[in-house]
Amino acid sequence: MSATISVASARSQRWRLRGTRLRTFAARYSGRKDGMLGLVVLAAFTVLALAPDLFVGPLETATRATAHAFDAPSAQHFFGADDLGRDMLNRTVHGARISMTIGLLATVITLVFGVVVGLVAGYSGGLVDNVLMRVADFFLVLPTFVLALILAPVLIEVVGADAEFLGIRATLLVIVVVIGITSWAATARIIRSQTLSLKQRMFVDRARVVGVGPGRIILRHILPNVVNLIVANAVLTFATAVLTETTLSFIGLGDPFQPSWGQILNGAQSSGAAGLGAWWMIAPPAASVVLVILAFTLMGNALDDLLNPKARTRQ
C-alpha cells in the first residue's frame, strides 16, 4: 500500500519537475529574438495552411479562374493572376497547405525512422550498430536531392500517380517517402551518439540490474533523455523537407492537382513568366518558401543552442 503511494507521489513530482523545466525553457526561448521572429512567421503560415478556404475561398482551377491570363496585380487581385487567369493570392495560400502538410509528413517519417535506428544502433552496439551505421553513412554521402530525383519517378511508376490515400494524391506521398528515405540518416547519427553516452550513465545500469528489458530501457530511460535533441532536430529537418519538396515539385515531380509552392513555381517556369517580366507569378510562392524556411532555420538555431548539450558549451 505504501509502495503504491510513493510511486504515485514520485510520478506527480516528476510531472511537476517537467512543468518547471518547460516554463524555464519557455522563458529562455522567449529571450531569443531570432527564435521568436521565426515562431511568429511560422504561426502566420500555419493559420493560412489550416483554413485556406476561409481566407481566399476554394482553390481556383482552370475552369474556376476569376481573372484573365497574366493579369498584373490590381485591387481585385492583389497578387495578379497566372497564365490561366487563376488568382495568385488564392493559389499561394492554398499552396501553404500542401507545402506544409508535405513538409510535416516528411519530417514525421524522417524522425520516426531516424530515432528508431539511432536508439537501436546506439543501445545494441556491436554488429547491429555497425551494419546500421554503414547504411546510414551510405545515405549521408549520397546527395539527397540527386537520390530523390531517381527514386521519385520509379516509386510513382510503382504505385501509380492517380492512387490516393487520406485525400493526398500518390505523387505527393511518394515525395514524402522519398524525403524520408533520403534524410533519416542525419537524425539517426545524432540520436545514436547521444544514446551511446546515455548508455554509460548510472540510471541505465540500475534499470538493467533490477531486470528491465532492453526495449523498456530504451523507451522509458533513454528516449525521454533524447527528446530535447529530437525537437531541435525536427525543426531543422522540417526546413530541409520543405526545401526538398519545393525543388522536386519545381522540376516536375509534383502534382498539378494539389499545387504546392514548388508546383506553382513550376507553372511559372513552364509558362515563361520570368522572361515575360510577370514577377507576380514568381514573387508570392517564392517569398513564401523563403520565409518559411528562414523561420524554421531561425527557430532551429535557437532551439539547438538551448537544447543541444553540445551546442550549449560552444560560444
Partner: peptide, 20 residues
C-alpha cells in the same frame, strides 16, 4: 536569407530584373 533560398528562387528574380 541566401541559405534559405533554393537556387531557382534566386535565379527567377534575376531574370525578371536583369534580363526581362
Amino acid at each position: 536569407v541566401l541559405y534559405s533560398m533554393p537556387y531557382f528562387v534566386i535565379g527567377m528574380p534575376l531574370i525578371v530584373i536583369f534580363a526581362a
